[in-house]
Structures are given as structure tokens and as C-alpha cells.
Design a protein around this nucleic acid. Structure first.
Length: 838
RNA sequence: GCCGGGGUGGCGAAACUGGCAGACGCACAGGACUUAAAAUCCUGGGUCCCGAAAGGGGCGUGCGGGUUCGAUUCCCGCCCCCGGCACCA
């Protein structure tokens, strides 16, 4: 009897893996590669079971693929820059570098204690100058190509974190990190021109078959493409032109006024022309401030006022009034719209409120009469047929659009265009703990990039953290004051740092070549390993990280450094682990620490439980009792092997001498119970393999193995230990130990060694499925009468349809239900069921 | 409002191409072993009805229809939950 002591096994095998660098890999063209990646971690201090679930999913995939013969890259690293460390420094005085390094050390230990099979030799942290140097290098390449540019614009500002936020980082009008309502500020900022790839990023989503529909939809919504037209409405006094964007140019004959957003540049100009510019400006200002607050509260009253000026509708040539309206967005389209109250609900409400004219120009195709403009209760927004539209009358909406765009083009008053919701990515952050932006401002030469040979621009060691709303780097004169690289004259450095999402947008390339000091990575190595075959992480990154990374992949591609566009072939978004119905968090006090679970039950029980409790995408509720149940399953597996060991040892065909069917003496001479075990073994191999590799349905893979274990226990009780029985069980157990090892590697390595194997499971191959063995001899076929199951027949698997029908009709239980009635119809699905209709 | 995902026992879930609904587990109940407990092993269970029992019958995958010999699965119309987007012209 060998006792099962999981905690000891954890230590033994983890030490051995570390000592042999068991998970490091090199490029090997002779083997198929598999790049398995989990989203790297922000070193917050402690990984809870919610985080850990993700690493276990990835580890099951990585360990399985290794045994399946793949060259597996499975690296890990740290998304180490970021605000929490800096905010902690403001409170505690501990430098972010110090706390971050300590957190990394602790969390690395946690992952190692879980036995996650990372190639730790490739570990990286984004706060290492050797890493962020290449952020800066890439920034300069993007600057050279116009993909990084500086502009003054109104940006999202979090008053609590005292920094700018990208649009993607504003959630429900608040800061993604702290929830504080976001304000707007006018600032000079650096932007990445992600909109240059908007089309491509959107179009590619159609072909990303191994990404969840949900994520693709979210990205499509985020990019938000709409096709339409820009049309110029000249001012009546010809002093300027107003350009509008519309998706419904077919309704332009119904455009009875023009609306300007409060941010529109023309608004300020018009103010000057009025009798009371101050009152005008004040009015506009009310809209601008009230606007955002109103939007957050969700309750927005349509407001507006007449400028007193008029523009000319270029299709009707009629003058139309120009109004300013609070609901017109300054940063979408052209910031001005043509209002068609009859066919747009917002314009309709506005027109009714301010008594503006409504003109119907679209009727439904089914011939119903046009609604009365004076009494219609709401706008009719559907496509239809044009009326009252001059030479464009009596056309289907789509056709009218085409002709009108052609007309506008010919006259130079407009063109077809595409508009995106996606905006350029503002990456400047007025904070310390991030990558310095490698730019220099010179009075004579303007904006000058830091020369490549002076990279990295190292983050200076700031010791005082105040949390004031200006860049901490501006307080370090020896950092700020430099000579201009062009003219040598006095110049200042950029003092903002980069958004940390820049760091995480390309780290998966660096893993392919983490020590390279001459370039971000060797393109040859990236060609071998990339794209990532399997990427898993939380749904919260569905837009942010995953759209930025797709953008960066294309930037690297256009720099000629990679030869693909999509960096992640398959994406799995793992569900959260809840405790007491809520997301785990320190403040709620409901964090489950993996280490306490490891001490109680060992790493394998925790790993197996988290995989078994539900499919990876599902949210799950943590329960300690479930974990205990799984721990006893592992003990049950242990005892099963332990019980059979004496029989294996005294048997000439013991497991260590050969594998699988080849050592089963006299396969033709097995009892039906022995054949049943072999059948179950191979059926389990088939199910487990498909569940892991094809479906990532890891919970049912575990269920299947549990069934096999249950059958083996039942077999052990009823069958004696004749050589064939021992061999059949040996085959089953060796398959089981190998299939279970990705989930429970420590226990299985030990069992594998116990079974007499010296090379470790890493070198063991995955069990081979044998369809001939798995094939059922006898099957149970249900017989339905009028759709209800009335009997079950046990028949040979290959019974023909005719035989099945005869047996069904002869079955006593079936005959009772037929009871002399006429059988009208017989349906036989071979090997599945017989259905009788009377 | 638009888009996406989902609704199956007390709970987590399973059901592969339309073919025995509830595998596997948790919790629970009963039993064996034990002085006792823990551990372990065995048994039970969707629900209602008839029956002392063996057994038999009805209903049952959010609701209402449809297609089909047969529907958790396909189609139509609803309800509810979760997530995303949202005065986006």
C-alpha cells in the first residue's frame, strides 16, 4: 500500500521540472508547432482562483499538445507597468518598481506551485528597459510613417486617476479602472492612427472562425462602420460651407433644416456675426458642459436654438434654417447633420418641439398613401420609394442613393463615404509608471524623435509621488532638459508616458525571441512560432487589448517584420469565478487564495476541480465542497493503480515492458467483461481527445475519465486476476494516467513512474484510439410506438434494419401496445431505434 | 432601440449529424464497515398518479404554435436573464 500524499508529489515534481528545464523549447522545423498563450498578468500581488483558472486551461492545452507530438511554446510574463502600483506608491511611499518586483516574485511562486508548465526561461516584464526599449523603437517607426501623431483635441480625463483615457477605456461614462465619471479636457496628446486600419480590422472579423461570435460582434460594434455620403450645404450668404454626413441621402429632399453640434467650428464664427455674441456663446457652452453629464445619467432632453442664419439645400436649392442642437455629436461624422424630420425620429422630435417644417419624401413600397406631415405621430424610418424629390422621384431608396451620390459627385457638392465610430487611440498618460514617450521638443526643429542608438529612454527614478495632475517626469530636470538631437540646441523631452496597453499589444511576439537586444524580435523566429494558436483570457479584454493587438500585428506586417495579419488564431474567453455570487475582489473580502487550497488538497485537485466544474467559457460559483469531491476522485484513481500494482508486477506482460494492445495475450480469448473494459478504454480515449483538442470542453473530458474509473472499480470486484484481465486493466490504466496528466500532472507523473516508466510523461505519447476495439458488439435499441418508448431490444450491433423490425414486432412489451391495432408505418434507424406508428 | 449569448432536477452540468432527456459530479437520504467518528464502499432519487410490491401510466428541457414516425436540437411568434453598443445622423 502506498499512501497518496499530493502535497509531497507537488514538491517532488515541481523541483524536477525546474531542474530539467522541462518546458523550454527551441524552433524545430521537423515538428508541428503549437503556441499556447494565456493573457499575461498584471502583478497586482496575489493571483486568486479566478485568474488561475485561465492558466490551468492553457496548461491543459499545452501539456496535451506536447504529448500529441507538437513543439509547444508556452510562455508567461508580466504586464508590469500601470496605475495601481503608482497609486499605491502615493499612499505608502514604496516605489512602484519595488512593489512590482515583489508582486511578480510572489505570483510566480503561486503559478509554480500550481505546476503550470511555463517556459520560465522566456519570462519578461514590460517594466524592464530591455522590453520597453522596443515600445519606444516601434513608436518612432510609427511616427515616421504618420501612424503616431500629435494633436490637440478634447480628450477623456479621469479626475481621480489624474490622467487621460482612451475611448476604449471609458465604460458607461466612467473610468474603466475606478469608475469615476470622466470629464473632457482640451490637451495636446499623442495618438496612434488605428483608424487607418478600421476597414481591415472590421472585414477580417468575418473570417476569424475560431474566435467567439460574441467577441467579434463586440469588435464590429466598436468599429461601427456606416456607409453614406458627405454633402455640402453652402451658407445662404456664401460665407462658408457646411458639410454634413448622412446615411440617408435618399431623404435629402426632406432636409428642412441643418443642425450643428455645439463643438462645430462654425458655431464660434457665427457667434461673432450676431448682435450679442456673448449670449450666443453662453448658450453653446451650456450644451457642451451639460451634455456629458446628461449622457451619463441617460436622460437627454433635446435642446437647441436658431442661429438666425440659413443654408441652401443643394438638391432643392431652398434655404433652410441653421440650428445648434445638443444631441449632435461634435466628434462623429462632420459634426453637422442635415435634419430630415419626416424620416428620422430624433429630427422629428426636434422639429415638433421647435415647430420646424416636416416634409415627407419617402413612401412605403406597398402603395400605402404618404403620411400627412402635419399629423404623423412619428418619423417613418424604413426604406421605401421617393416622392416629391424632383428628378429623383419614384425611385427605390437604394437606387435614389446611388443616383444622388453620382449627381453630387458630378456637381462637386458631395461624395459617397464611409464613416467609423472607431477613433484614433490616444496613448499619452500623465503618469510616471509607464514607458517614456521617446520624443524631444526643440524650439528650432520642432518635434524630434530620440535617435535609435540612444534608446531606451530610461524611466528616471522618481522618489516622490504626489498624484497631482501633471506628469511626474516633468519634475525631473535632468530628464526633461536635453540637447536637440538635430541642432544640439536646448530642448525638452516629452514627459508623458505611454498607455500600458501599448506594452501588451505585442508581448506575444517578444516571447518568440525574448532576449534579443538588436531588434524587438527576430522575424525568422516569429515566422516559426506565430500566430498564437490558442489564446485564452478574460472577456473584459474583448475590445481593448484584442483590438490593439490586431492593430499592432498589422503595423509589424507593414514594417515587413511579420507575415500574417491576425496574431491569434483561436481565442477562448474564460468565464469568471464567483464567490457568493460576486466577482472576487480584495475590497469585497471574497477572494479564494489558491495557496490555502493547495495546502489542503494539493495542486492537482484544484486544477481538476476548476476544469471539471463547468465548460471554460461559463461563469462558475466557487464551492469548497466541490473541490473536496474531486480530491477524493484523485485518491480513488491512486488507489485503483495501487491495488493493481501487485498483479502488474507478477505478470510477465507488466506495463513497463510494453504499451497498449500489443501486450494483451490472446486478444481473441477475452471474456465479454474484459472486452467491455477495452471498449470503454478506447471509447474514453476518443471522447477525451476530442473534448480537449476539438471542443475545449474540458469538463466532459474529466467526466469521461470518471466513468472509466467507475467501470474499472466494478470490473475489479467481479473479475479474477487472470493474465488477460490484468493486461486489459493495464491498458486502461496506462491510457487513463496519460490522459489525466494534463489536468493532474503531479499525481500522474508519480503514477507513471510507479508503473515502471522512467522517462516521464513529457516523453510519453498520447494513448492511441483503436476504432475496432471501441466498436460495440451489442447495442440497446429503443422501440417507440406512436413516438413513445415502449421497449428496448438488446441486439447485435450490426443487426440489419429488417432484423430490427422483426425483433421489434415480436417483442412482448411492444405487442401489448400494438394490441391488435394496424401498424401503419415502420421507421428503422439502423443502430439507433425502431419507431412504429399505429 | 440595435447586436450577440443564454433559459434543462435542490445545485454545477451532459446529450456528437433530429433518435432512450438528466451522463458525470456536488449536496441529500438509506445501508455496510467501525465501540464511535472520519475515511472508504454500496444503494436511491425529474415530477405526478395507480399499486402492498414487482411493475405500470401521465406530464416534463422558459411560454404558445408548426414541421416530423420522432424536437432540448429545425421553423414562426412571444417572455425572461446576461453581455456589448447606443441621440453614431
Amino acid at each position: 500500500m502506498t499512501e497518496y500524499r499530493p502535497q509531497q508529489l507537488d514538491r517532488k515534481w515541481q523541483e524536477r521540472w525546474a531542474a530539467t528545464r522541462a518546458f523550454e523549447v527551441t524552433e524545430d522545423p521537423s515538428k508541428p508547432k503549437y503556441y499556447c498563450l494565456e493573457m499575461f498578468a498584471y502583478p497586482s500581488g496575489h493571483a486568486h482562483v479566478g485568474h488561475v483558472r485561465n492558466y490551468i486551461i492553457g496548461d491543459v492545452m499545452a501539456r496535451t499538445k506536447r504529448m500529441r507530438g507538437y513543439n509547444v511554446l508556452h510562455p508567461f510574463g508580466w504586464d508590469a507597468f500601470g496605475l495601481p502600483a503608482e497609486n499605491a506608491a502615493i499612499k505608502s511611499g514604496i516605489h512602484p518598481e519595488e512593489s512590482t518586483r515583489a508582486n511578480i516574485a510572489h505570483m510566480k511562486g503561486q503559478l509554480q506551485r500550481l505546476g503550470i508548465s511555463y517556459a520560465w526561461e522566456r519570462e519578461l516584464a514590460t517594466c524592464d528597459p530591455e522590453y520597453y526599449k522596443w515600445n519606444q523603437w516601434l513608436f518612432i517607426r510609427m511616427f515616421e510613417r504618420g501612424l503616431a501623431y500629435r494633436k490637440r483635441s478634447s480628450v477623456n480625463w479621469c479626475p481621480k486617476d489624474q490622467t487621460v483615457l482612451a475611448n476604449e477605456q471609458v465604460v458607461d461614462g466612467g473610468c474603466w479602472r475606478c469608475g469615476t465619471p470622466v470629464e473632457t479636457r482640451d490637451l495636446e496628446q499623442w495618438f496612434f492612427r488605428i483608424t487607418a486600419y478600421a476597414d481591415e480590422l472590421l472585414d477580417a472579423t468575418v473570417e476569424m472562425e475560431r474566435w467567439p461570435e460574441k467577441v467579434l460582434t463586440m469588435q464590429q460594434n466598436w468599429i461601427g462602420r456606416s456607409e453614406g455620403a458627405r454633402v455640402t450645404f453652402p451658407m445662404e450668404d456664401a460665407s462658408s460651407d457646411i458639410e454634413v454626413f448622412t446615411t440617408r441621402i435618399d431623404t435629402i429632399f426632406g432636409a428642412t433644416f441643418v443642425l450643428l453640434g455645439p463643438e462645430h467650428p462654425l458655431v464660434a464664427k457665427l457667434a461673432e456675426k450676431t448682435n450679442d455674441p456673448a449670449a450666443f456663446r453662453k448658450h453653446v457652452q451650456t450644451f457642451r458642459t451639460q451634455d456629458r453629464a446628461a449622457r451619463i445619467s441617460g436622460e437627454i432632453e433635446k435642446q437647441g436654438f436658431d442661429t438666425g442664419f440659413r443654408a441652401i439645400n443643394p438638391f432643392t436649392n431652398q434655404p433652410v434654417p441653421i440650428w445648434v442642437a445638443n444631441f449632435v455629436l461634435g466628434d462623429y461624422g462632420t459634426g453637422a447633420v442635415m435634419a430630415v424630420p419626416a424620416h428620422d425620429q430624433r429630427d422629428f422630435e426636434f422639429a415638433r418641439k421647435f415647430n420646424l417644417p416636416v416634409k415627407v419624401v419617402i413612401v412605403s413600397e406597398d402603395g400605402r398613401p404618404a403620411p400627412d406631415a402635419n399629423t404623423m405621430p412619428e418619423a417613418t424610418v424604413a426604406y421605401g420609394r421617393t416622392i416629391d424629390s424632383g428628378e429623383f422621384s419614384n425611385l427605390a431608396s437604394q437606387e435614389a442613393q446611388q443616383r444622388m451620390i453620382a449627381f453630387a459627385n458630378a456637381r462637386g457638392i458631395g461624395e459617397g463615404t464611409v464613416q467609423y465610430r472607431l477613433k484614433d487611440w490616444g496613448i499619452s498618460r500623465q503618469r510616471y509608471w509607464g514607458t517614456p514617450i521617446p520624443m524631444i521638443y526643440c524650439e528650432t526643429d520642432g518635434i524630434v524623435p530620440v535617435p535609435d542608438d540612444q534608446l531606451p529612454v530610461e524611466l528616471p527614478k522618481v522618489t516622490e509621488f504626489t498624484g497631482r495632475g501633471d506628469s511626474p517626469l516633468a519634475q525631473v530636470p535632468e530628464f526633461v532638459n536635453v540637447k536637440c538631437p538635430k541642432c544640439g540646441g536646448p530642448a525638452r523631452r516629452e514627459t508623458d508616458t505611454m498607455d500600458t496597453f501599448v506594452d501588451s499589444s505585442w508581448y506575444f511576439y517578444r516571447f518568440a525571441d525574448p532576449k534579443n537586444d538588436r531588434q524587438p524580435f527576430d522575424p525568422k523566429k516569429v515566422d516559426y512560432w506565430l500566430p498564437v494558436d490558442f489564446y485564452s483570457g478574460g472577456i473584459e479584454h474583448a475590445i481593448l487589448h484584442l483590438i490593439y493587438s490586431r492593430f499592432f500585428a498589422r503595423v509589424f506586417r507593414d514594417l515587413g517584420m511579420v507575415h500574417h495579419s491576425e496574431p491569434f488564431t483561436q481565442l477562448l474567453t474564460q468565464g469568471m469565478v464567483l464567490k457568493d455570487g460576486a466577482v472576487m475582489s480584495k475590497s469585497k473580502g471574497n477572494v479564494v487564495d489558491p495557496d490555502t487550497m493547495l495546502e489542503k488538497f494539493g495542486a492537482d485537485a484544484l486544477r481538476l476541480y476548476v476544469m471539471f466544474v463547468a465548460p471554460p467559457e461559463n461563469q462558475v460559483e466557487w464551492t469548497d465542497t466541490g473541490l473536496r469531491g474531486i480530491a477524493s476522485f484523485l485518491a480513488r484513481v491512486w488507489r485503483l493503480v495501487d491495488q493493481w500494482m501487485p498483479a502488474f508486477k507478477s505478470n510477465p506482460d507488466s506495463p513497463s515492458t510494453s504499451l497498449g494492445a500489443s501486450r494483451i495475450p490472446n486478444p481473441g480469448d477475452l471474456t465479454s467483461a474484459e472486452r467491455a473494459i477495452r471498449r470503454k478504454t478506447h471509447d474514453t480515449i476518443r471522447r477525451v481527445t476530442a473534448d480537449i483538442e476539438q471542443r475545449q470542453q474540458l469538463n466532459t473530458a474529466v467526466s469521461a475519465m470518471m466513468e472509466l474509473v467507475n467501470d474499472l472499480y466494478a470490473f475489479g470486484e467481479s473479475e479474477g486476476a487472470r493474465p488477460q484481465a490484468v493486461a486489459v486493466v493495464a491498458e486502461a490504466i496506462e491510457a487513463l494516467v496519460r490522459m489525466l496528466s494534463p489536468f493532474a500532472p503531479h499525481t500522474c507523473e508519480e503514477l507513471w513512474e510507479m508503473l515502471g516508466h522512467r522517462d516521464g510523461l513529457m516523453k510519453a505519447s498520447w494513448p492511441q484510439f483503436d476504432a475496432a476495439v471501441a466498436k460495440a458488439e451489442e447495442i440497446v435499441v429503443p422501440v417507440q410506438v406512436n413516438g413513445k418508448v415502449r421497449s428496448r431490444l438488446t441486439v447485435p450491433a450490426e443487426a440489419s434494419e429488417k432484423e430490427l423490425e422483426e425483433m421489434a414486432l415480436a417483442d412482448p412489451a411492444v405487442m401489448a401496445h400494438l394490441a391488435g391495432k394496424q401498424v401503419k408505418k415502420v421507421v428503422v434507424a439502423k443502430g439507433r431505434l425502431v419507431s412504429l406508428v399505429v
